[in-house]
Amino acid sequence: MPYEWLPPEPGPDGPHHRLHLWPHRSLPRRGFVLFIGATAALIALPLLVVIGSPVLWGLLPFFCLALAGIWIALRRSYRDGQILEELRLTGDRLFLTRHGPRGARQDWEANPHWVRIERHEKGGPVPHYLTLSGGPRRVEIGAFLSEAERLRLEPELRQALSARR
């Protein structure tokens, strides 16, 4: 599941709860290596027929370009998917930090007593879009989660917040 509640940490004002959210990776690192290897083998298979002929040297650059293109596209996908959202709930503050791709960081904080969780069935970028409001602005949480995961996350967030009120 692309989110998890970490064990509470003791704090001077009670336990601090933490939630980590990240995008689902459908192709793990090991799968990446296997996919590139299988693609190289399947593309190279027709080249076996032309080994020893000058046609091989005409086809080889296209083989290398295709493999390099797949490699670059998958690496870019991995880099763009390096997102981590961290929600920390202390005694009197709620912090949401989003670590985006290429080191971008966004912070938001509010008093948990005033934070409202809103689910937007329609009208957001994704169905059942979750937002937190109560500070200086409204922020999204878990937009990269699947619809079912957002529906599961909402009551868990409400329960964690109600325990702080």
Rank of each mutant, 00 (worst) to 15 (best):
R25N: 06
G52V: 10
L27A: 03
R30E: 13
H16E: 15
A148N: 12
R98T: 15
N111K: 04
R29G: 01
V33E: 05
I51S: 11
G91Y: 02
P112T: 07
L34T: 12
L153A: 03
A38M: 13
I43T: 15
P46N: 15
E85W: 08
P7D: 06
R75Y: 08
W71Q: 09
G103P: 03
V139T: 10
W71G: 11
G124I: 04
A143D: 13
G37P: 04
G142R: 08
P112G: 01
G100N: 06
G134A: 00
G58V: 10
L153P: 00
V50E: 04
P23V: 09
C64F: 15
I36K: 09
V33W: 06
R93T: 09
E147F: 01
A68C: 14
R116D: 01
G69E: 12
R29I: 07
P7M: 09
G124R: 01
R102E: 14
A160D: 06
L67W: 05
L21R: 01
G123M: 04
E4R: 09
W108Y: 15
L96K: 02
A41R: 05
L47I: 08
G123S: 04
P155G: 07
E4M: 03
G11K: 03
R150F: 08
L87Y: 11
G69R: 08
S162R: 10
G69M: 10
R116L: 01
G69L: 12
L45K: 07
L84M: 06
Y129E: 06
L59D: 12
A40F: 12
D107N: 14
I36V: 11
G123K: 03
G52N: 09
Q82V: 05
W57M: 13
W114G: 00
L84H: 04
L19F: 01
S26E: 14
A41F: 10
R152N: 05
L96G: 02
I141Q: 01
S77T: 05
D13H: 04
W108A: 06
Q82I: 01
G134Y: 03
R76I: 06
P28E: 03
F62A: 11
A143F: 12
P125F: 14
G58H: 08
R150L: 09
R79D: 10
S133E: 08
S53D: 14
E156I: 06
F35L: 15
D80H: 03
E154T: 11
S146R: 06
N111R: 09
P125I: 14
R105G: 11
C64E: 15
D13S: 01
S133A: 08
A148E: 15
Q82H: 02
D107G: 09
P15Q: 13
W22N: 01
I51N: 09
L153S: 03
A73M: 05
T97S: 13
G31N: 02
W108F: 13
